[in-house]
Amino acid sequence: MELFDILLSASFWAAAVRIASPLIFATLGELICERAGVLNLGIEGIMVIGAFAGWMAVYLGAGLWAGVFVAMLAGMAFGLLHATLTVPFGLSQHVVGLGVTLLATATAAFAYRLSLPEVTSPPRIEPFQPWPIPGLADIPLIGPALFAQTPLTYLAFALIAVVSVVLYRTPLGLALRAAGENPASVEAQGLSVTALRMGAVIVGSGLMAVGGAFLTMSAFSSFFFEMVNGRGWICIALVVFGAWRPGKAALGALLFAAFDAGQVRLQQTPIGAYVPYQVFLMVPYLLSILALELMSRRAEVPAALMVPFNKGER
């Protein structure tokens, strides 16, 4: 019974769309990297640095959009580091990715303590407010879910279309996908695999950081050390679940967010009195593992994912 009440409430769907937004940014970012042939395990740390940098910029007086831009630049900087080590130098993408995550997380923590040594409760900023779209926002159920969100959510959904079009309808997208499938063919066309892959990792990392910034600038208004809490790893699972396609991956993010919004609401029902809250909190991670299992047989992994390319080597 409670389940139906939850599914019919507008706040549930609005929450699902809100929870999906940062995941969509970061999942699209990871997808771009992987489509070009680079697994970016820096995602978790890059989301942390994005969450911190965007929030800090606004805390220091910058506008909200300037904050988003700062977050993106911070993410791109760590993306550049990741790309330099993994693409031209061909170092292990596992080791470098985890190293970038550790470095970015530590940098955010260090900078936070350095700039706010004394605070005990995290300071707040004035986050993005919802922009209800006149007319559409009044539609029952769908209106509040889709048309009364913050601008960053609209941006996330617009990006799904942009990434799809660029990947499948432009020469750049074709070259990018080829870099992840058959890099030698890209090189044969006179294009640089190194440039394509580095560009993909840098842009993708920028998107991950904006996903992190969504947490501090749209979902909450403060920065906490543990706030990303594995969302980056979940996004890597979502890319696999979406079979490396932007639309499917975003759909996966929405589905996932709906479960997440559902478990929070189920905790408030009589079921929550019997089941420990930790079980509800485990649901997102368990779902991600389940999704990986379900997709394992049908996965269309980019053929050159995690295979470094060294020109002139066969």
Partner: peptide, 16 residues
């Protein structure tokens, strides 16, 4: 058995 990437599963198990 299924070819599921262990990086993500082991990472997620940390949180679980």
């Amino acid at each position: 058995r299924l070819g599921v990437d262990e990086v993500v599963t082991t990472l997620l198990f940390n949180f679980i």
